[in-house]
Every structure is written in structure tokens, then in C-alpha cells.
Amino acid sequence: MSRMNAMFKKLYKLVLVVSLAIFLFIVFDEIHNLDNNSKRYLSEHYISEGVQETGAINIVTSVLYDYRAFDTLGEATVLLTAAAILSFLVPLGKDKMLGTTFTMIVSQTTKFFIPFLAVLGAYLILFGHLAPGGGFVGGVVMAVIPILLTITYRVEFSEYKFKPAKKKLAEDIGAIGFILLGLVGVVTGSNFLANGQANFGPGNTGELISAGLIPFLNLMIGIKVGAGLAIIFNSLIKEK
């Protein structure tokens, strides 16, 4: 009986996962093969008109920063709140992390890695409207730099290079700049965070400075995500 019970327990998890997978497969198959096209008019509109309306080649970016920019603002506010609460709650102290001391190879390799990470993060942020990527991914890559410094050297060195006050300032600039850029749409006589519908043109599609507000919004989100993630990591590693 107990053997049956053990076998049932083993099968139980497997059946749960497989049934969830089958359910999701059926749901996505059903969505993909909808016969009635009137239910998909929004995605049809995004795909066929998105490039002309917003000027961004990357349709995901055009949905994220133009059609649904208000949701992105909420998403960014969640991250700001998390970073602020964490840096407020976690006490200041020494890190009690790993007892290991790294060899010279690790510290030298870290030193050579950091410029590549900076270039990659800047590329992902600035070309967010032309190629896959965007502010969130680029910000995370930028945040890897202080995290690498924290892991390889100590948290003191990382906070000596990137001062916490400056990181907080950068995050505030990102959060406030996003809202101020949204107000540009109001000033030009349209809605909040309007880009394609506003009166300034989207520019030549395919150039670096085009698509209206989207590159600047990407830059703000990138600064904000990078600074916020670095603050969160450095706060959590100092926790006892």
C-alpha cells in the first residue's frame, strides 16, 4: 500500500505538469486558429499599421512604448517601489557573503569584461526601436556591472565606484523623466504619452533618432531598471 502511495505521489506531480502543458497547448492553439477575424482586429492593426503609425521597426517596442505606454509606466513604478522599499528596510551593514577569496584570474577577467557589458547594454537600449531588445533587457545588462564588482571584489568597492546616492539619483531621473516625456504629448495637443497620434512626426523610419519619443522613453527605462536592480542587489547582499 505504501508503495502504491509513493508511486502515486511521484506520478501526481508529473500528471499535474503534463495536464497544464496540454491545457496551455489547447488554449494557444485555439487562439492561433481563431476563424473569426473580427476577434483579432487589434493584432492585425498592430502588425499592418504599427510601423507607419509609430515609426518603430520593432513592433514589440511600438506596443510597449506607444500603444500601451501607460502600462509600461505602471510596470516601471512597481520596480521603483520595490527598490525604494528594499533600500529603506534593509539595514546598512557589512556583507556576510562568501568566505572564498578569488584568484587574480577572476579579478582580471572581470576587469576586461566590464567595457563589453557597457557597450552591449548601451546598444540594446539605444537600438530598442530598430532591433530586438529594449530598455528592460539593456538595463539588466547594465546592472550586471555593479553586481559583478560586488561579487568579485567586496560590496565596499562596488559602492565606492558606484555611489548609492548617485544610483538613487539615476533611478529618480529615469522615473521622473518618463513622466515628463509623457507630458510632451500633452503639450503638443494630444493625450498623455501620445507618440504616433501627437503632432510631432515619427521621423524617417529606420534611423537612430526616429519614432518620436520611443528612443528617449527606452533610455529612461534603461537607466531606471539598471539603477534599480543594482540598488536591490546591493541592499539584499548586505542583509544578515
Binding site: P132, V141, V144, I147
Partner: peptide
Amino acid sequence: QAPGPAIAEAVIAAGLTTVFFVITINK
């Protein structure tokens, strides 16, 4: 055909996420 996110994913998956989990288990 998304080389940028590919490099970013390499950085994030190999560097960030693993380090987070290792430090969490350590702590």
C-alpha cells in the same frame, strides 16, 4: 534572428540568475 537578446540572455542566464540562486542558497 535576434542576436542582441541572445547575448543579453547569455549574460543574464549564466551570470545574473545563477549568481542570485547561488547566493540565496549560501545565505
